[in-house]
């Protein structure tokens, strides 16, 4: 689909625990547990529940972080990973 909007799973459905360089996330809607390493948590937090296109997400990340490698293909992969595990929805 052309330029989908990505949004984070609803906040009430997430139980988050910080473990060293990973965060552990229990997703109540699926009953599944995921461990996230950078940049996944940052991407989720930036997307929020409102939803952003990939381009808008890239811009926000670049503004908020010192991005050494703004590679569109890499960002697409990171988003695909999050969509595949159910923590981000694409619409």
């Amino acid at each position: 689909m052309p330029d989908p909007l990505y949004r984070m799973a609803r906040a009430e459905a997430l139980r988050i625990v910080h473990l060293d360089s990973f965060i552990a996330v229990f997703h109540r809607d699926s009953g599944l547990t995921h461990l996230l390493a950078a940049p996944a948590p940052e991407i989720m937090a930036t997307l929020g529940e409102a939803g952003l296109s990939r381009a808008a997400l890239a811009a926000r990340l670049a503004a908020e972080f010192e991005l050494a490698d703004l590679d569109d293909a890499a960002l697409a992969e990171r988003l695909d990973e999050l969509v595949a595990c159910g923590l981000v929805a694409a619409a």
């Binding site: 390493a37 950078a38 940049p39 590679d71 960002l75 992969e77």
Partner: peptide, 11 residues
């Protein structure tokens, strides 16, 4: 923040 190379995993 590093987005990571393609082929890397974050989840």
């Amino acid at each position: 923040l590093m987005l990571g190379a393609t082929g890397a995993v974050a989840v």
